[in-house]
């Protein structure tokens, strides 16, 4: 199919510090090739948005970055993913530690059937012994960072299943923040959350950006253009174009990107 990412001027390397770098990344589900030859550099402490029509493997790409694809039987990865310059697919990698460093918020919020407090404390409890007061502190800090603290501070012992959808979404974020990741992968729900909830989460992203490298998969063009610094356009398992957000949205070089961001398909 010609167009390999490496030598193309469609794939721009961001300036500044690099957090993640993939080269020649490919993903197979059995015979089916879900991703081909993705080579991209993701900037540290910036928001990178991945866009593209449904089924274009953006989510699969995201799941390569913390090796969640390992859980799918028959999934096979080729190429390299470097996190701070080290290959995460190296056999010496402890996947649990990798996933602690590269946190992920899923499309649908999935509170564990425990209290709000226990949901957030779940990660810290896994990764080492904390005193009661340390845990309290982490829980509060994470819930504050996820803009949920004020709403739940009096009901921390109540079941997380009683929260509203938007609150559950923020709880999922708090739960990830509590393990102090370096990278935050966010898979946006296709269906719109209620607008207020979405807005709060967007604000949250911008706040978090100062400390985390954030990669979001989104279907909301408006959101992508507003919050992200870099954007990549995926089509049929390929990364078509990647660069600064203004460029992708206002002056794309590839016709397909142009068609997509102008809403001609997808």
């Amino acid at each position: 199919m010609g167009m390999s990412g490496m030598d193309s001027d469609l794939i721009v390397r961001p300036e500044g510090e690099v957090k993640i770098e993939t080269s020649g990344l490919g993903l197979f589900y059995g015979e089916f090739q879900a991703l081909r030859d993705v080579s991209v550099t993701i900037a540290a402490r910036r928001i990178t948005a991945l866009i593209g029509p449904s089924g274009c493997s953006k989510t699969s790409f995201l799941r390569c970055l913390n090796r969640m694809n390992d859980l799918i039987s028959g999934a096979r990865v080729v190429g390299e993913v470097l996190l701070d310059g080290r290959d995460i697919y190296h056999e010496a990698t402890d996947v649990a530690v990798l996933r602690k460093r590269v946190g992920m918020v899923f499309q649908t919020p999935n509170p564990f059937p425990m209290s709000i407090y226990d949901n957030v404390a779940y990660g810290p409890r896994l990764h080492g012994r904390c005193s009661r007061s340390q845990l309290d502190e982490i829980v509060e800090k994470s819930l504050r960072a996820a803009a949920l603290w004020e709403e739940v501070k009096d009901t921390l012992r109540k079941s997380a299943l009683d929260l509203s959808g938007g609150q559950q979404q923020r709880l999922s974020i708090a739960r990830v923040l509590a393990v102090e990741p370096e990278v935050l992968l966010r898979d946006e729900p296709c269906s719109a959350l209620d607008p207020t909830a979405t807005f709060r989460i967007e604000e949250l992203m911008i706040e978090l950006m100062t400390r985390y490298t954030i990669v979001i998969v989104t279907h909301n063009m408006y959101q992508a253009s507003r919050v992200s610094h870099y954007a990549g356009f995926f089509l049929l398992g390929e990364l078509v174009e990647y660069g600064p957000t203004e460029q992708i949205f206002e002056n794309p070089k590839d016709q397909r990107t142009d068609d997509y961001v102008r809403g001609r398909f997808g």
């Binding site: 996190l83 080290r86 995460i88 990698t93 402890d94 649990a96 530690v97 990798l98 460093r101």
Partner: peptide
Amino acid sequence: MKGTQSMHRPQRLGPRA
């Protein structure tokens, strides 16, 4: 591999063991 901190820390042996 040279620098084996963080990603392959020895205390991870705990949960693994």
